[in-house]
């Protein structure tokens, strides 16, 4: 593992299935490896969202802090998941905490770098959003179901 280049890692990663070699070359230049210990925050609500964090190994969770209730875990994330989308959404501040539930290995892509490359190589940009949006949409759909409080006493 330690000897893999970022490009090798991207080539093996499910979030980059469907990217050709040229696209991987471009994106790899924006990336670096990250490791987090279980319990450690990947980022905190309000932080500048400057990186695209993509899980390789281990689980993470999205948490929201509520007064008197401590942090609430509302979504868990697994290898292959793109942790957050705040980097795409002005004012580019994290809207929640993200915490490593287990030890986590991740790829962090510099968001500015990725967006610049997408602007410069529109074909790369199209491919990236074409392949990543379904991932986002799937999670939105799951969260809609979660909103229903399905297992509460008055749900059915």
């Amino acid at each position: 593992m330690a000897h893999q280049t970022i490009r090798d890692i991207l080539a093996d990663h499910p979030a980059f299935l469907g990217f050709d070699g040229a696209a991987l070359d471009l994106i790899a230049g924006c990336g670096r490896n990250m490791r987090y210990r279980a319990g450690e925050l990947l980022f905190r609500e309000g932080d500048a969202a400057e990186t695209v964090v993509i899980l390789r190994h281990g689980d993470a969770a999205i948490e929201l802090a509520a007064p008197g209730r401590g942090p609430l875990r509302v979504e868990s994330l697994h290898p292959g998941d793109i942790v957050d989308w705040s980097w795409l959404l002005p004012p580019c501040r994290a809207m929640s905490d993200a915490r490593a539930v287990t030890d986590v290995a991740a790829i962090a892509l510099d968001a500015r770098c990725v967006l610049d490359k997408c602007d410069e190589h529109t074909e790369l940009g199209y491919r990236l959003f074409r392949l990543w949006l379904p991932h986002l949409a799937r999670r939105v759909r799951m969260q809609r179901l979660q909103l229903l409080d399905l297992y509460g006493a008055h749900a059915r």
Binding site: G39, D59, A61, I62, E63, G70, P71, L72, R73, V74, E75, S76, H78, R99, V101, T102, M142, Q143, L145, Q146, D149, L150, Y151
Partner: peptide
Amino acid sequence: VDHAGPEWGGPVGV
């Protein structure tokens, strides 16, 4: 589970 505190190490989601 739909939501949990930080003591929950399992998945959160439907």
